[in-house]
Lab assay of single mutants.
Amino acid sequence: EPSQADLDALLSAVRDNRLSIEQAVTLLTPSSGGGSGGGSMDAKEILTRFKDGGLDRAAAQALLAGRTPA
């Protein structure tokens, strides 16, 4: 399960175009075949909204942490 520091680094990389959204989703869902963790939004949607400015960093982190299976 990614830590808050991992999520923060991942969000920074996506925002700075050092990591594509697809690459980030793969890192967030290493063994689930890329499927959502059952959250209301999947990781790709969360990351896309964050990059487009629709979500701030704290909200994106909380959503990603919340949808990651324990």
Rank of each mutant, 00 (worst) to 15 (best):
D16S: 08
R15N: 05
S12W: 05
D8R: 07
S40K: 08
G38L: 14
M41D: 05
E22Q: 05
R67W: 12
E45F: 05
Q61F: 11
A13C: 06
L28N: 01
I46D: 01
A59E: 09
G34N: 12
D42Q: 09
D56P: 05
I21M: 03
A59C: 13
A59T: 14
G39R: 07
D6I: 13
R49F: 04
I21K: 01
A13P: 00
D6H: 13
R49E: 03
G37V: 12
D42E: 09
E1T: 13
G54Q: 15
L55Y: 04
S3L: 13
R67E: 07
N17A: 05
P2T: 13
T68I: 12
A58W: 09
S3I: 10
L7K: 02
L11D: 00
R15F: 11
Q4A: 13
V14D: 00
A58S: 08
Q23I: 07
D8M: 10
G38I: 13
R15W: 14
G34I: 15
A24T: 02
G54I: 13
S32V: 09
F50M: 02
D6T: 07
S31C: 15
Q61T: 10
R18V: 14
D56M: 04
L64H: 01
A60Q: 00
M41T: 07
S31M: 09
S31T: 12
L64I: 04
S12I: 08
A70T: 04
V14C: 02
A43V: 12
G38V: 15
G66V: 10
L27G: 02
A5E: 10
T26P: 03
A60Y: 01
A59S: 13
A60L: 03
G33K: 08
R49M: 09
R18I: 13
G37K: 08
G66I: 10
L10A: 02
A58Q: 10
A65M: 15
A43D: 04
Q4W: 15
A5C: 15
L28H: 02
A13M: 13
L10Y: 03
E22W: 05
I46V: 06
G53H: 04
L47D: 01
N17R: 05
A59N: 05
L27E: 03
S12A: 06
G34W: 04
E1G: 09
G39H: 14
A59F: 05
V25E: 03
E45I: 07
L27S: 04
E1C: 11
E45S: 10
S12T: 12
R57G: 04
T68L: 06
S32H: 11
L27P: 01
E45M: 07
I21E: 01
A60E: 00
A43I: 15
Q4V: 07
E45K: 05
E1R: 09
A62K: 12
T48Y: 05
L19G: 00
A5I: 15
N17L: 06
S32E: 12
R67L: 06
A9D: 10
Q61M: 15
L47A: 02
L28D: 01
E22D: 13
R57C: 05
A60D: 00
L63P: 00
Q4S: 11
G35S: 14
E45L: 07
E22R: 05
L19W: 04
S3C: 13
I21L: 04
R57T: 06
S40V: 12
E45H: 06
G33Y: 09
F50H: 02
G33T: 12
G66W: 10
E1V: 11
Q23K: 09
G39L: 14
R57D: 04
S40A: 12
S20H: 03
F50Y: 12
S20A: 04
A5G: 09
L7A: 02
Q23T: 06
A62V: 07
S32T: 13
P30K: 12
L11Q: 00
A59K: 07
